[in-house]
């Protein structure tokens, strides 16, 4: 089952073309990893999925990203990026909780959708924190500031914030690059666990992480999608020389 389909996507920032004719499927309830050296366009591709580039001037999309089952092209000009972001969640490289309480952070997405019923918000807050594996650590201090949490906890809070609105697709932009190894393995376990309920696309610099958590991997280089395959195959018998050089550590 395909959740989303990237079709002939070209993307440029001003004069500079960052993505060149990228096409790939995103499978339902699977984890798709985007890997490649710095500047290859993997984060740019990820940020196309929730139209994050629309916040800045000079972004130009050409091509399609079809979101199934309704096959809507989320890059179409007449599609409101806000509507896209309602369906597709994102977790960033650096934990970015709001300077608000833990509870307010989790229910923020629900509140901006106009949901006010307290019992519902509280219930959803607990569910999301459970799903993010943070409930046990914070259940007694939901009203204290999110800034009091450690980096790893903050990142799990950001995951809970994204999950609270039940996204169809969850984008993770190097979610562990700012974390220590223990927090990282915590989050990796969590990510694998989450794919039961949500389709995940993850950008990572860490090849071991891609190999550990993902089902499919896309290798990108200088804006081109070089290879897309099952992760196990990609890491054992890559078909392109450049992929092989990258995953064996010869460049990047």
């Amino acid at each position: 089952m395909v959740k989303a389909e990237v079709k002939n996507l070209n993307f440029s920032y001003g004069e500079k073309q960052v993505l060149k004719n990228v096409s790939m499927p995103i499978y339902d309830n699977k984890i798709t990893a985007l890997i490649g050296p710095s500047g290859c366009g993997k984060t740019t591709l990820l940020r196309c999925f929730n139209r994050m580039h629309d916040l800045y001037k000079g972004a130009k999309y050409d091509g399609q990203i079809l979101l199934h089952p309704d096959e809507v092209n989320i890059l179409a000009r007449d599609i409101d990026p806000m509507e896209v972001r309602m369906r597709i969640g994102m977790v960033f490289q650096k934990p970015n909780p709001f300077p608000k309480s833990i509870y307010e952070n989790v229910v923020y997405g629900l509140k901006v959708r106009g949901i006010k019923r307290r019992s519902f918000l509280q219930e959803r807050c607990e569910q999301s924190l459970q799903a993010a594996g943070l409930w046990g650590e914070v259940k007694d201090r939901l009203n204290s500031g999110a800034q009091m949490l450690s980096g790893g906890q903050q990142q799990r809070l950001c995951i809970a914030r994204a999950l609270a609105v039940e996204p169809e697709l969850l984008l993770l932009d190097e979610p562990t690059s700012a974390l220590d190894p223990i927090s990282t393995s915590h989050i990796e376990d969590l990510i694998v666990d989450l794919k039961k309920t949500v389709t995940i696309v993850i950008v990572t610099h860490n090849l071991h992480q891609a190999a550990r958590v993902s089902d499919r991997t896309a290798f990108m280089y200088l804006g081109d999608l070089i290879e897309f395959d099952e992760t196990s195959k990609m890491f054992t018998t890559p078909s392109d020389k450049r992929t092989e050089n990258y995953i064996t550590g010869r460049f990047g």
Binding site: N50, M52, L55, M82, E83, R85, M86, G89, M90, F92, K94, N96, P97, F98, P99, K100, Y108, G109, K111, V112, R113, C158, R161, A162, V165
Partner: peptide, 25 residues
């Protein structure tokens, strides 16, 4: 900017981002 991005990423509008995130912060 990352606080604004966090707000937009869950589907907030510009007004919601301004009044619920930026001004309190």
């Amino acid at each position: 900017g990352y606080l604004r991005e966090a707000s937009y990423a869950v589907g907030a509008s510009r007004m919601q981002t301004a009044f619920r995130v930026v001004i309190p912060a």
